[in-house]
Design a protein around this nucleic acid. Structure first.
Lengths: 256, 256
DNA sequence: AACAAACATTGCATTATATGCAACATGAGT
DNA sequence: ACTCATGTTGCATATAATGCAATGTTTGTT
């Protein structure tokens, strides 16, 4: 099905503005999209009418508008998993001393929907709202190993440790399933190691993943199983809280 | 300047989906917008391509998509005022026992960008991302009294206490300016009373407002000045933290 | 102060896109 | 098996969107 070009252009403008710290002028937008500046002006005016962008009165530059906060926050607030998971994220921080995150699958990627920060000076933060790849993040590998989504078609490289070979990744995911938790061993960010485990609902469907991230110097390979067990146990407690009965689940979801 | 119709329709779809708890089907969207269902289908498909909506694989229904969370959260996270204000919101909760909020002006309304909840069982929450009117909320009246925006053209009624007469509102705003804090006396929500005060930056520009909200039974008229003084003092401390020098500001922003 | 350059907006004729209609495929209910 | 509703797709047509040129405004240079 073909796209609606005008709508697509408007949405592209929003994505451009995400990366424009000081907003963008009409001509900049036109140049980036390779369209006439009069077209850009009309697209921006329409986005502004509905509050999706705002135009600075002094400089005429456009920035992302409040309607995105309203819709985005509204969507976030209706994910009940966030409320249920929050205490467990705090528990993860308490037990591991590292930052804890909650993610769901969206857009064939991993969407971070909550985090609890640790008190450590050196810490790993993942901004809520961030979309990350599936194949090289701990939370993403949980979706692949325990959920029903397919492997992506391509595996982008982020560090020299990123696995981009399909059969190697599949073997890793098989190991993940056996262990009951996933590992990101500096595959997405240098110096950062993460562990994550699946969260199921009362019907046994994967609804998200929780995990911790820390500097590789603290989340060492020697301690990875210790961290992994804590994360797995906490995820299981959260799943139980959501009405998941582990006995009814096939043994493939158990890490024993 | 005329709007771009296709883009406007796409954005209207997003606004419709905000209120659709279980998503909407293609035909529902078409009916709501009075357009053909083939047009609705193409608009929704385009929105889905860019992640602004998601289509449920089983039911074909559309819902708001993760890109809105990404963009909205990105925008929210870049408002440095939130980080600076957070400790002061906690201070307000500690001192008053009520929920504290931070808002900025956006779209000729008041946009809530942060809140700290009190521990009281009965409390007033304002969802982050919410847009509220200027003329009948405490935070909104702060924008009108201490900022440079004009009065709205119309004053919608929310409770029987909502002020809708322009000269009465102007007199109220003059009082607000003298007092140094604004009051919402059940004008926006029945049973809820709020107090708010202005936050200035180092250049003396109004950048936001902080305030508290509570049940009218606790935030009584007898105690309103006590609450007002606490909020005003906290807002002044935050302004000072942002580099605002109260001595350089005209006396109109001082509440004495 | 005058001038040039860049930017943003607007009018308008033309072009390309978006549209609605009809047909088709699919699923649900009887 | 049949009917109805929904969603998608092909296609001809109508309309909106487009780009060009002109205009107005602001900024920077001389």
């Amino acid at each position: 099905m073909a796209e609606i070009q005008s709508l697509a252009r408007g949405l592209k403008i929003l994505n451009l503005l995400e990366h424009a710290r000081n907003g963008m002028g009409t001509t900049e937008v036109a140049n980036q999209l390779s369209i006439d500046k009069s077209s850009a002006s009309r697209l921006l005016h329409t986005l502004a009418n509905y509050g999706f962008v705002e135009q600075d009165e002094d400089t005429s530059r456009y920035s992302l508008g409040p309607q995105l906060v309203t819709l985005g926050q509204h969507l976030l607030n209706r994910i009940t998993l966030r409320d249920h998971a929050r205490p467990y994220l705090h528990e993860l921080v308490d037990k591991t001393g590292e930052c804890a995150h909650l993610a769901i699958q969206a857009q064939k990627q991993t969407l971070y929907i909550d985090q609890v920060e640790s008190t450590a000076a050196l810490r790993v933060e993942s901004e809520i709202g961030t979309l990350s790849p599936l194949h090289c993040t701990a939370l993403g590998k949980v979706m692949l190993a325990f959920g029903d989504c397919r492997l992506p078609d391509e595996f982008k490289t982020f560090t020299h440790r990123t696995v981009t070979d399909r059969s190697t990744l599949e073997a890793q995911l098989a190991q993940t399933e056996l262990r009951g938790y996933a590992i990101d061993d500096e595959e997405y960010n240098y110096g950062v190691r993460c562990v994550a485990a699946p969260v199921y609902d009362h019907r046994g469907a994967l609804v998200g993943a929780i995990g911790i991230s820390g500097p590789a110097g603290r989340v060492t390979l020697e301690r990875i199983d210790e961290f992994g067990t804590v994360v797995k146990d906490t995820a299981q407690a959260l799943s139980a809280r959501l009405g998941f009965d582990a006995k009814l689940r096939s043994s493939s979801s158990q890490g024993e």
